[in-house]
Design a protein around this nucleic acid. Sequence first.
DNA 1: TTCTTGACTTGGATTCTGTCCATCGTAGGA
DNA 2: TCCTACGATGGACAGAATCCAAGTCAAGAA
Lengths: 154, 154
Amino acid sequence: MSLDTLRGTPSNLNRWADMSDLLGRLRGRGWRMTSQRRVVAEVLDGDHVHLTADEVHARAAQRLPEISRATVYNALGELVALGEVAEVTTDGRAKRYDPNAHHPHQHLVCSACGAIRDVHPTGDPLAGLPAEERFGFTVSAVEVTYRGLCPNCA
Amino acid sequence: MSLDTLRGTPSNLNRWADMSDLLGRLRGRGWRMTSQRRVVAEVLDGDHVHLTADEVHARAAQRLPEISRATVYNALGELVALGEVAEVTTDGRAKRYDPNAHHPHQHLVCSACGAIRDVHPTGDPLAGLPAEERFGFTVSAVEVTYRGLCPNCA
DNA sequence: TTCTTGACTTGGATTCTGTCCATCGTAGGA
DNA sequence: TCCTACGATGGACAGAATCCAAGTCAAGAA
């Protein structure tokens, strides 16, 4: 089954909506399950997880030492395409992967130590952009990153 | 004169505040002017400019063929440190350099073609994060990127 | 259960972005 | 005009990510 097929199947999406775990949702959507993909998904499962691809690889390799970096990149790319994981770029360095994609949220980043917290602001952030400032764009998403100092670094 | 010296001189900052051009401000702040730095500043001057370092280098090289990439990176880094240019990361790829740093704004990015527009939303974006969602952080800045499709790609 | 096949994994090469460093050149003050 | 500290150079290097050809395997079919 191709990624394109997986992407556009609302019936599959809904059928498994009650499963809380990433792994179950993926299996339910027909994602071909391999030992490598399983450990990548397991490493990413949870709250406040913001790992780089290399960190995911390192943790996956603890359980499956022969897993390659290319496989981790492939799996992460597909999870992002499926909408199960969000890519976030908080510094200019490596992208981070956030499995909390089903709960819209924003990020609060410490400028000193790089710590990242999920935050949930009030109101619709899209509403901040009036129509006359949209220049004909169809605006569908907004990414917000707050920066400051965490309690430890302040 | 060192960067540290340049950074913290409000008198210099104000003395040249009426100059509209980047080049003039830099010279007024004592930035040592070389032919390489001049073309980098000239390439960046203007509105709605969001060039990558490589694009800056390519345009600078049209006027000064022997300019090196390291020099462009050095100059860009200093312009950012001086607060004259802002770094923006709209995709996971190369950083872009935005000379519009004196007019706070946000970015509207086309998910298809990557086009970038400066936008000016209403209200204070920092106000969107209530105190109970700040977890003890001292929040000082916020970056907002709206995503969607531009008129050409829609 | 075994077979089959297309999808997945591997690891090494490659690209892209950015930094570092020793050496050379020069802007701007004396 | 001369000095010299600061800036430029380009090649090496490093980190992040992608590409590719060859080998492997999950899952449906028989």
